[in-house]
């Protein structure tokens, strides 16, 4: 092996180091300026990595399934009793819902209300977690070829999880509603006051732009308002956790750590009589 003189080698090393620090800083600035370029880069790499990450997650999921099975076996009797009770309760709710449904249809007919836009759901598995202190995103293993589009709402089992922000061919990125850049038009379910749910990387996002006279108290349910036409209205988000001067905090319904499958909401607004199609981004 050729022995390079120590000072020359050290200098070369120092030069490479400075060059790379400069390059990293340059890429950071470039990413801030040309968002589309970085997005393309990210989606391409994510498309490539999604199957790898899916495979790597397999043992974790298998272990979880074993633990889950054991737990379920232990609680089988209790669970059965609970479910029987719940089933009885839900059956009576079903009766009520059926009656309301019929009533509603009749009223809609009487008032000539245009029907709500139809939503369909596309399921995707969470294969990657950001693991960064600065962003709250997740990588999904479904993309454009599965029908996912930028801007779609994504639901966990309990409620809204966030919004699809990047879509590749077979992968996409979900911006969680707790992320610093997340803004979602919301409405308080009972009082119908509208506002914006703004994430700030904490576990509980806050509500901005509520009317000054709005009455809010902890426990109020928060749902999507559908303003802006990006999300369907009425998707459950969370409950108001605390109201202190200046900040209303919302506890999301979604259980982040058990979020394995999300459903992206494919939703097209009905065509208005004039003008172009709103809402649906093509």
């Amino acid at each position: 092996m050729l022995r390079i003189a120590m000072p020359v080698k050290a200098m070369a090393q120092r030069f490479a180091f400075l060059l790379l620090v400069g390059a990293a800083t340059g890429i950071l600035i470039l990413g801030k300026a040309d968002v589309a370029l970085m997005e393309r880069l990210r989606t391409n790499v994510a498309d490539f990595l999604a199957p790898v990450l899916t495979a790597l997650g397999q043992p974790v999921r298998a272990t979880e399934a074993v633990i889950q099975n054991a737990r379920e076996l232990l609680n089988l009797r209790e669970e059965n009793a609970r479910l029987r009770e719940e089933n009885a309760r839900l059956l009576s709710w079903q009766d009520i819902a059926r009656r309301f449904e019929q009533d509603n249809a009749r009223f809609r007919q009487l008032l000539h209300i245009t029907s709500d836009p139809v939503s369909t759901f596309i399921s995707a598995r969470v294969v990657g977690d950001s693991g960064s202190a600065f962003v709250r995103t997740m990588l999904l293993n479904a993309g454009a070829r599965d029908g996912l589009q930028k801007g779609q709402a994504a639901l966990g089992a309990e409620g809204l999880a966030g919004r699809i922000i990047e879509v590749g061919q077979r992968s996409s990125r979900l911006l969680l509603l707790t992320d610093l850049n997340s803004r979602i038009p919301i409405m308080l379910e009972n009082s119908r006051y509208r506002g914006i749910l703004a994430g700030d990387n904490s576990d509980q996002p806050r509500i901005d732009y509520l009317p000054a006279n709005a009455q809010v108290s902890p426990g109020d349910r928060v749902i999507t308002s559908g303003s802006g036409g990006l999300f369907p209205s009425g998707l459950p988000i969370g409950v108001v956790a605390s109201v202190s001067d200046g900040a209303i905090r919302v506890q999301p319904l979604v259980d982040w750590h058990s979020l394995e499958i999300v459903s992206a909401v494919r939703f097209d607004l009905p065509k208005p009589d004039t003008g172009e199609r709103i809402g649906a981004r093509r």
Binding site: V21, A23, A24, I27, L30, M38, L41, S130, S132, T137
Partner: peptide
């Protein structure tokens, strides 16, 4: 150093954070 830089970029791309941040930290 070049490999470290590449590893950092990969981490940035996966995490969805600013691209170049982890590359800078690792370098």
């Amino acid at each position: 150093a070049s490999a470290v830089f590449g590893i950092g970029l990969l981490q940035d791309v996966i995490s969805g954070g600013p691209i170049g941040l982890m590359a800078l930290v690792l370098v």
